[in-house]
Structures are given as C-alpha cells and as structure tokens.
Design a protein around this nucleic acid. Structure first.
Lengths: 346, 346
DNA sequence: CTGAAAGCGCTAACAG
DNA sequence: CTGTTAGCGCTTTCAG
C-alpha cells in the first residue's frame, strides 16, 4: 500500500523547459512582477504551470526572501476563548497574504519551548502570544531572536512588544459595582493564578469597587486557585465545592473567568445553594456557552474577535516597520440570570 | 520605535569562522551525525553555537532534505472538540520530532483552500483532516500533491488515505436502545447536516435501534439542520425552539452532538418543557462542559485524545512507508441527569 | 575525523 | 520584455 512517488513536485525549471522561457521569466509571471512580460508569455507559463500541477515552493522562496508569510499564534490551550481571537487574527492576516497557525503549549512549559524553537527555526514572520508565556525564560528566546511579537492580555514592559489588552480593572470594577448596586455587600472573588496578569487587574478592579462603596476588603473571601490544567472545569468545580463546604457567608461571587463561574454554579447547586436566589454569580469572558447554562450567566463580554484583529494589525505594523502603540479595548457587561438582588437576611 | 536589526541571525558559516572548522564539520555536530568528529570539536562547535545564539534554519534544511517535520491539522473550526484531538496528535508527534500546527477553515471553503495552498507550498510533511473537507475539490488538490494524509471521523474510499473513526452506528444504536430500555418509544433525532459522514452513521444507528424494537421509523421526528456556522449554539437553539414550538409528541431526543443537546435543553426550558421530566435528551461527543450544564447531559463519550494519537501514529506510518490500515475506535455512553424513564402518558 | 564543493528551488540584480 | 548568474543556509557525497 504505497503511493508511487515517481512524479516529484514540479519546479519553475520544468516550466521553463516546456515553455522555452528562462526560469527568470517564469518566476516573474508566477509572482506577477510588474508587466515585464507579454500577455502571450503569461498565458504559456500559466498554462504550463497548471498542467504540471505546479506549486511555488515557499521553502525555497523563503530561503531567498527571508519572509515566510507565516504567523504563529501561541496559546496555552486551544479553547473557545482563543478560538475566536484566532478567527480575528486569521481574518486580517489573510487579507495581507499571511497565514496563521496555532501552537498550543497545553500548559506545559516544555511543549511551549518546543513550539518556540519550531517557530524560530521555521522563520515565521511574527508571533502573537496570548496570555503570556508559562515560562519567562521562553520569552527571552523569542526576544533574542528579534522576531516581531505582540501579546494579547498581557502587558510586557518590553518597548518592542506591544499588547492588546482590555480595560480589565475598569470593567471589573463596574461588574462588582453592579453587584453592589443590587444590594450585595458580601462579595467573594475567585480566580485562576494571579500571575496571569489580567487576573491581577481584575482583582484590583474588585478592590476598587469595594473601596468606593466603603466595604472592607476581606482576604478571606478571595480565592486564588493556583492550579492550571486541561481539566479546568473539574478543577474549578472541586475548588469551589471545597470553599463552600465550609460555611462561607457570601451573597455574591465575582469569578475571573466563565469557566470558573459555570463550574461554581454546578458546585453550588450540588451543595444545595440556589443561583441566583441564595447567591449571585458573575463571570468574565463571554463564552458562547454561558448563554446556555441554567441559569444563564451574567458575565463580562470581551471583544475577542476584535482583539484578534487588532493584534494582527499591530503585528503587521511591526513587520512593516511602521510605528505602533499598545491598544486597550473595552469590554461590556451582559446581565443574564445568574445575578439577582440580594434577599433580606434573617 | 524600531528594533536595531544590525545583528542578523547567525549561521553555520559564522560558527565555522570562529571555530576554524569547515561548515561541513559544523553541520555534522549540529546534527549529531554519528561520531565523525572528536569530543573536542564537538565542544568547540556547540559552545560557539550557543554564544552566537545559533538556530538551525529549518527553511534551508528543508530545501535540502525535503522534510520539514511539520504537520498540519485541518479543522472546520477550533473548538474543545478538536482541541482534545489536537493534544493527542501533538503528544505523539513531538516524540518523533514533528511539530503540528492547526489550521482552521472557519466553515469557509475559501479559507480552507487558502489553508491547503499554504500547507502544500510550505511542504508540510503530512496532513490530518478532521471531519472531512467542506469542498471535495479541495481534497483533490491535496490528493494530487501526494502529501500523506489521514482523516478523522470521515472515511474516504481513497486507499491512500486511511481514517480514524469510531463505531458511530453501533454506539448510536446503543444510545437509542438505552432510551428504549427506559420506556421511550417516541424518540426524535436532531443533527447537523448529513454530509458530515459521521452523522449518517449515527442516523443509521438510530434507525437500527428503532427497527430492532419494532418501532416505526418516522421521518417527521428526524430533524436535520442544514446550516453550519460559528454561532453554533444560537443556531441550534433557534432550530430546536422552532421544532418544538409546534406541538411535537416526543418523550426523548437523540442529538448528534453535544452542542445541539445543550442548546436543546435550553430551548426546551424556555418553552417550559422540563428535562428530563417531560423529555429526555442524550447527546454525542462527551465535551467536558456537558458535566456542568443543568441537568448534566447523558452523552456518548468519544475517545478524542486517543483519536488524535492514533491519527498521528497512522500518519507517521505513511510518512515512513510502513503499511497501515483504518482504525475504528470505541465510544461509550455516560448516563447523567438529562435522561429519565418515561412518565405515564395520560 | 575533516574539508571542498555541488546543489535544493527560488529571487533579484544586472545585462541585454 | 527576456536571459544569465549569484547566492539564500544547509546537507551530503567524495576526497583526503
């Protein structure tokens, strides 16, 4: 069961041979370089190319031109969250002839390093990093290589590396203010590890809102799950369940991601708390699934598609040597069923 | 704001220069080719490489060797479903030194074609196609290129293209039999477009089960949503809502994907049907989120990680000229809260 | 154990 | 408008 590999890939040389033109001419028409060839030449070359099933060899071309027109999108895991960013990236990339491939580290620093090595070895023209890298040392490798980079959701102090962020602190503050506005004063905060950057900002927003409302900040109701993993739901579920199996006096939770929020709802249900009657929950991200949980989730919706578009535009600017600056986008709160006015305590 | 590009990437030539060896020798030690060099040579070259921050240029190497050690994973959209397959692929690929990048067509035949062109131009060593291509003509392009291919969840008659499938028909039959075993006889089938291959098999399994139980197959309770889109939840939700806004006499639904099932639960809730009291629902795929919906979803769990592993192993066999055959994996049913014995009709 | 040299497929001066 | 030619960085005979 083996495919006959007699016929190898055809090259411009082959086309040159059967058309009688030189490889230079063939190259010109293949690349549409100006009008330095006749209509007739064009037709002959193109039809020869077609009949030979010719494909330009991007490898050879890249060796010469130092441009591969390939972009890497580096994520810690592939999920709906990154997926939509990816689409935004792809949409603007393809307009400029760039293609983008997604590399997942699966929350594994070694895999991340391997991915980076591959990306650098393959001379990809740029890298978009989502949510920063697991291993700071891995960033140094990229940095030394001088490949254009932009980050999403993680601001680095490196002046060569601009970021796409959203106003995490501001919108988090608003989210918590909303909770306060409907009577909540005992509001917990649950999140992934703080080192993710964006999470810090969200915690800060949470504190801002409490401070403004004259509510004391209480370390005891801030829960940071220090574990990141693929089985993120199970992980969060157990985490929340654990928290609430002790008697905790909260009427609302601000969760730093939708995954946490959705898991929390389930955990609370299983513990016989009713959402939103006993406890309100607000999430963060705006994943599509959150409209389909019961109750549907009140959440902060991030403009993920837009983030992807902006990231790629920014990267293009760096590649083309134009000037660029950081971009800070707005998110918005969508109120659904998981939040309700606080009930009278008795 | 522009990075000084004075220092370009270093090459084996640079290493040769500062060590005094020839580029051939440098190449040998970089590639660990046998023991055709002394320990001393080795050390000198390696330390020079390190000090120059040397990266092998995969582009140049590929031009010479015709192998890029890059694999493409082609998906119609990036989602949790493909995500886990991806991890399986990546895990076995990396053991053999291959890296894999994911290319999404976003349910767009043009994007798909563009991706394929990029993949072929970049001489990727192999392609894993999930769920078949949108456009059959696009497959011809790949086929003509003779690049090794394996498909997941879509069997092609092409003898050069083996597939990883699961026993869709068999397990679907079992799923419906389970519904029947708890008293259901009015069972609907809701799915994505039939041309996805796997869906046909699931429908067949559904019919098998009905036939065995002596239940008449009724076209009227088989709903095929002919639309595929990114907003898959909204789409399915509306579709199901639409179906059930007419008075439909069903006690159970077999949904061909979890997304449909989850959307259906919500749609039914909004229509004041109770799941599973009024109607039972069983899904298909085993997405992690389905444990966290309310009620949690009874579903067919596919071994997605395993599918990815097997696909990559198969691809490696083709690449290495070994013999290969199709692989058909088993799925299993996990019973959760969305299914219950049928209530007495009155 | 090491070096010289050819060439992978393509682009881009430069010369007509 | 077209052809010649010199590499891009690397691997790989073939000689030593």
């Amino acid at each position: 069961m083996n495919r006959d590999s007699d016929s190898k890939r055809s090259t411009i040389k082959d086309i040159a041979k059967i058309t009688g033109f030189s490889i230079a001419t063939v190259s010109r028409v293949i690349n549409n370089k100006g009008i330095f060839y006749g209509k007739d030449t064009y037709d002959k070359v193109i039809s020869a190319a077609r009949s030979l099933n010719y494909y330009p060899d991007a490898i050879a071309r890249g060796l010469k031109t130092k441009r591969t027109y390939n972009i890497a999108f580096l994520v810690p895991k592939t999920s709906e969250f990154y997926s939509e960013i990816f689409i935004g990236i792809q949409d603007v990339a393809s307009v400029s002839g760039y293609s983008v491939a997604m590399y997942s580290s699966k929350f594994d620093a070694n895999q991340e390093k391997r991915n980076i090595n591959v990306i650098l070895s393959n001379r990809l023209d740029g890298i978009i990093i989502a949510t920063s890298l697991l291993e700071p040392k891995n960033f140094d490798i990229i940095s030394m290589s001088k490949v254009p980079v932009v980050t999403i959701e993680k601001f680095l102090k490196d002046p060569f590396v601009p970021s796409i962020t959203i106003k995490n602190r501001e919108i988090s503050k608003k989210a918590v203010e909303y909770l306060i506005s409907i009577g909540h004063r005992k509001i917990g905060f649950i999140s992934e590890p703080l080192n993710i950057g964006k999470v810090e900002s969200r915690l800060r927003g949470y504190k801002d809102a409490l401070a403004d409302a004259g509510i004391n900040y209480d370390d005891f109701v801030v829960f940071i799950d220090e574990c990141l993993a693929e089985e993120i739901f199970d992980n969060c579920y157990n985490y929340v369940k654990n928290i609430f199996s002790k008697k905790i006096d909260l009427t609302a939770i601000f969760a730093s991601t939708d995954i946490i929020a959705v898991s929390a709802i389930k955990a609370l249900n299983d513990l016989c708390y009713k959402v939103p009657d006993d406890i309100s929950i607000i999430g963060f991200d705006g994943l599509e699934i959150t409209k389909y949980t019961s109750p549907s989730l009140t959440t902060v919706i991030q403009p993920r598609y837009e983030m992807g578009r902006e990231a790629m535009s920014l990267l293009l600017k760096i590649i083309n040597g134009e000037k660029f600056e950081n971009i800070d986008l707005k998110a918005k709160i969508e109120i659904r069923q998981s939040t309700a006015p606080v009930k009278e305590q008795n």
